[in-house]
Each structure stands twice: as structure tokens, then as C-alpha cells.
């Protein structure tokens, strides 16, 4: 996409018009410049985030030496992993239910299923806070059981996303394939395992990645469900940002950004760039 292309521009090649490109470029700059600066300055050998003083890994060492930060990171990853597993199972079941069956009050069930997606995070967070307080949910359990409240809250807002992804994936399923398998002698279970599940797989992978990032990303709901001994990474970063901006936060953030990029690369590898573009 050379900026100055000598080929004449066809009427519908809007993307090749200069102002369109500038607009796109400026938007991408706006989206990426802060993140790139943040990453660059995590290697800056200075307390202040402004002037480049030289390259250092100092703040990474500090971040890794900061026990509560590491603990928060481990907590976050554990919660994300658990929430992903449960969300994929629940979401796949719910997606198949909506795709496959006709049942009374289906539209009501669909509506309720989409509520965790549209209800503001703050309201869900409040609801979880009150719920676990009211239930006298045990606190002070040994790790990782102490993360159960946060994990449950995360599953609640993750699995409807998985259900949506799985359902829309299944909409492209050709039911004749299922009949063909049965016609060739396969039982219900064999048909599910050999035909339906392979078709569902990209949806499951997309749903899993979505759950994992949503869980890892969540601050508000976690903020309301976490106790003093169940700090997650975003909650920890929040308190660090609130009270003191240090390059340590830059270092920790950079690690998380790189994790996101790695996850994206995994998704790319698994589904190809087109597949990813289609899932959203």
C-alpha cells in the first residue's frame, strides 16, 4: 500500500484516497502511540517517564521482585484459565441449545442470556458484592479456592459471549452433513463427535480466547468481588496508578500487552487472519 501509487484510482477504491489514508493513519496513531510509548518507557533508565535516559531492565527486575505484583499476576492468570474452561463448556451448551431447539419462552431465555453482556459492569459488580456478602461466601480459604468468588463472577459475564460465538458459528452448519453421517450409520453420539464438534471448534477457540481476555481485562467487577488477599493484576495496577506512577507499572503493563499479542498470534495461527476477522 504505497502512499503514492501511480495506478489511477478507481471510483470505489476509497482506501487509496489520500485523505482516507491520512484519517486511518491518524486513528491508528492515536490508538497505538500511547501503548508504544508506555512499552518504550518501561525500558527507560529514569524514574520519570518523559526523558529517555538509557536502556535498562531494572524495572522488570523490580516488578518480578515485587511479590504482591507477581501474586496478583498469578491470581489473574489462574482466574482467567478457570473462567475460560467453565465459560467454554457452559457457553457451548447454551449456544447449541439456542441453535438447535425450539422451546417455550425461548426469546425470554435469549434475552436473559444477553443481559450479562449489556448490564453495566458496575451493576454486575455491585450485584456480585451483595450476593457473596449475603451468601456469607467463605473468605480466607487456601489458594486457589479463595479465588472462587471472582472466578464465578467472571464466568457469569464470559459464558454468554461464548454462547453467542458458538451459536453464530453453528448457524453456518449444513444440517445435511449431520444427516449424511447418520445415513452412513453413525449414532447420535458419533455424529456429534465426528461432525458437529469439528465444525464447532473454531467457535470454541474464539470463545475461549474471548473469555480469557475478558477475564484478564476485567477490573470493575473484580474490584467489587476481591478481598484483601485476592488481588488480581488489574486491581493491583489500579492501586499503583492511583497512588504512585512508577516505571514498574510500565514494565508490568508491557508484560501484559505482550501476553495479549501472544494470545492474538496464537489465534492467528489457529484460525488465520481471515478467521479472526470473521469472528467479530
Amino acid at each position: 500500500m504505497a502512499l503514492f501509487n501511480r495506478q489511477p484510482i478507481a471510483p470505489l477504491e476509497y482506501t487509496r484516497k489520500l485523505w482516507m489514508r491520512s484519517w486511518l493513519g491518524a486513528t491508528l496513531l492515536f490508538l497505538y502511540a500511547p501503548l508504544i510509548l508506555l512499552m518504550v518507557f518501561s525500558f527507560n533508565d529514569s524514574k520519570r517517564n518523559v526523558v529517555w535516559k538509557g536502556f535498562t531492565f531494572k524495572y522488570y527486575e523490580k516488578a518480578f521482585a515485587n511479590e504482591s505484583l507477581v501474586e496478583a499476576m498469578v491470581n489473574s492468570l489462574t482466574i482467567a484459565l478457570l473462567a475460560t474452561v467453565f465459560s467454554v463448556i457452559l457457553g457451548a451448551l447454551a449456544g447449541v441449545m439456542l441453535w438447535r431447539f425450539r422451546f417455550p419462552m425461548k426469546s425470554a431465555v435469549e434475552g436473559v442470556m444477553s443481559l450479562p453482556i449489556i448490564v453495566p459492569e458496575i451493576c454486575l459488580g455491585v450485584a456480585m458484592l451483595i450476593f457473596f456478602a449475603r451468601m456469607d461466601w467463605p473468605t480466607g480459604l487456601p489458594w486457589p479456592l479463595n479465588l472462587s468468588a471472582i472466578t464465578i463472577a467472571h464466568i457469569t459475564f464470559c459464558f454468554p459471549f461464548v454462547a453467542m460465538v458458538v451459536r453464530s458459528r453453528m448457524a453456518s452448519f449444513n444440517r445435511e452433513q449431520e444427516e449424511a453421517a447418520k445415513d452412513l450409520g453413525a449414532s447420535e453420539w458419533q455424529t456429534f463427535r465426528d461432525i458437529l464438534l469439528p465444525h464447532m471448534r473454531p467457535g470454541l477457540i474464539a470463545g475461549a480466547l474471548l473469555s480469557f481476555t475478558l477475564s484478564l481485562d476485567d477490573f470493575v467487577i473484580t474490584f467489587f468481588t476481591s478481598g484483601p488477599d485476592t488481588i488480581t493484576f488489574p486491581v493491583k495496577v489500579y492501586s499503583m496508578v492511583r497512588f504512585s506512577v512508577t516505571p514498574e507499572v510500565n514494565a508490568a503493563s508491557t508484560i501484559l500487552i505482550i501476553l495479549t499479542i501472544v494470545l492474538t498470534a496464537v489465534a492467528l495461527k489457529l484460525q488465520g487472519v481471515k478467521g479472526i476477522a470473521e469472528t467479530h
Partner: peptide, 23 residues
């Protein structure tokens, strides 16, 4: 290009806010 739009979307909200604040 789509991926370029989606990547910030997947990046932690807190980190993005913090990055903007730094700037």
C-alpha cells in the same frame, strides 16, 4: 487493518487508560 483495530480492544482497559494518562 481489522486486526489493528481489534488489538487495542483486546488490550487491558486499565493499561490503555494508564498509557493515555502518561502521555
Amino acid at each position: 487493518l481489522l486486526l489493528a483495530i481489534m488489538l487495542p480492544f483486546w488490550t487491558n482497559l486499565l493499561i490503555r487508560t494508564y498509557a493515555l494518562m502518561m502521555l
